[in-house]
Nucleic acid binder design. Structure first.
Length: 198
DNA sequence: ACATGGATTCGCT
DNA sequence: GCGAATCCATGTT
């Protein structure tokens, strides 16, 4: 299993977001291994992207988006969910890819327990469909912020089979972003049941 | 120091 | 289609 390199992420987020579809995320937790195929992503840009946290430039929160490509950017939304992003672009330029949905292939039992421990008593086979559930399922929380996916031995990405058809469309939940809401920066595997929304 | 609202999800209407 | 859950960075006073 070949791991993704630093240079893989040292490119614009729109490129990385598309190429990440089909890759495998692996997390070796203390309760066991959780793994799955990335089936849905979104790209977020710099100051020119009104949907991106970096739209205000470099702040305490967003300085990480200007850092090392390949590290995690985790933030909390609505006081409830953690969002898992991977930093893109060379140092000094802001960019990130949001992991939206994963088809879990290993450690489903652990992932389901993780969901049931939180607010999802009725957790079913759709374990990591949508960014909030994805982080819960993979035991990813704010403590993982700035963790390096390239060098970590516990959480990392490996190459997987790329789906034959990838749909490119506009992003979810960014209606406030004026003209940027229509940027076609969301990618997902066609006909995959684990994609969060059609 | 305070007010605002969000890269979400589910359940009820 | 809409409200609740409920944290915290950001922008404003």
């Amino acid at each position: 299993m070949k791991r993704l390199s630093r240079s893989f992420f040292e490119r614009p987020p729109q490129v990385v977001a598309e190429k990440l579809i089909g890759s495998i995320l692996i997390h070796k937790t203390d309760r066991g291994l959780i793994a799955g195929k990335i089936v849905e992503t979104e790209a977020y840009g710099d100051m020119n992207d009104l949907a991106s946290h970096a739209r205000f430039g470099k702040t305490a929160r967003t300085k990480i988006m200007y850092g090392h490509p390949g590290i995690l950017y985790i933030y909390k939304i609505y006081g409830i969910f953690s969002m898992a992003n991977i930093i893109c672009e060379a140092r000094g330029k802001a960019g990130a890819v949001l992991l939206r949905s994963i088809e879990v292939t290993e450690g489903k039992d652990i992932a389901i327990k993780n969901l049931k421990k939180s607010r999802f008593a009725k957790a079913n086979q759709f374990i990591a469909t949508g960014p909030g559930k994805l982080a819960l399922a993979f035991t990813i929380n704010s403590n993982f912020n700035s963790l390096d996916l390239i060098t970590s031995d516990t959480i990392y990405l490996v190459w997987g089979e790329k789906p034959s058809d990838i749909i490119r469309t506009n992003r979810i939940g960014v209606d406030y972003a004026k003209y940027c809401k229509d940027f076609p920066w969301r990618f997902y595997a066609k006909n995959n049941q684990f994609v969060s929304k059609k």
